[in-house]
């Protein structure tokens, strides 16, 4: 490898090796962070965009809401309360997990699961009430939206129940000896996200007009 004579002189001293031409500082290795955490956050973001799409579709229809009567079943208020409570119990479970108390974590998760299932049952009951009132999927665009929004949220909540159940079952199989706080954290984060989505959807459904 023969050394090649440079054609032109650089205009200013070339930064010493180890710099990258942009900053003179030595570059450390990227901070160790958890890909799992990033992955879950981004997946949640994608789901959020799905709901954003549905919500914007709902919002552009909102000005004609008054033409289409839709009385929301009152059980939805109770469901909302149940879901909020479940988020609290989930957060409590997370705190227990971080302090390494596997048993109370399992209790907290169990309570969350129970409340989640109760919420789903309540949503089905709300559907029945609506159906008895003669409001079906096809009746008008707002009844359609009611079923689509609640169903999409419900499907994601069923996934959430499945995930929490998985974490809970693994802990049970290990007889409450070890529990991965990260798994609890990420499923709790998803669960809170679903609670927030429901609060947002419930607000939307309660809007009478913009």
């Amino acid at each position: 490898m023969a050394s090649v004579k440079p054609l032109s002189k650089p205009r200013e001293p070339i930064p010493p090796f180890g710099g990258d031409g942009f900053s003179r500082r030595e570059q450390p290795a990227p901070a160790p962070s958890t890909p799992a955490r990033w992955g879950v956050w981004l997946a949640i973001f994608a789901v959020a965009m799905l709901f954003a799409g549905l919500s914007s579709a709902y919002l552009v229809h909102l000005p004609q809401r008054s033409r289409f009567p839709l009385e929301l079943p009152s059980i939805l208020w109770a469901n909302t309360l149940v879901l909020i409570l479940s988020s609290f119990s989930c957060q409590w479970a997370l705190r227990q997990a971080r302090q390494g108390r596997a048993l109370s974590t399992m209790q907290g998760l169990g309570l969350t699961l129970a409340l989640g299932v109760l919420f789903l049952a309540g949503q089905v009951y709300a559907w029945q009430q609506l159906r008895d009132a003669g409001l079906h999927l096809q009746t008008h665009v707002f009844s359609s939206f009611f079923y689509v929004l609640t169903a999409t949220h419900g499907v994601h909540l069923i996934v959430g129940v499945g995930i929490l159940f998985g974490v809970w079952a693994v802990a049970l199989l290990r007889q409450g000896t070890t529990l991965n706080p990260l798994a609890v954290e990420l499923s709790a984060f998803y669960w809170h996200f679903l609670t927030l989505v429901w609060l947002w959807l419930f607000l939307l459904l309660n809007l009478k007009a913009i």
Binding site: V4, K5, P6, L7, S8, P10, I14, G21, F22
Partner: peptide, 12 residues
Amino acid sequence: PAEVRAIYLPAD
């Protein structure tokens, strides 16, 4: 093309 070597222009 440049005979020997391109000019060095990091230009950032």
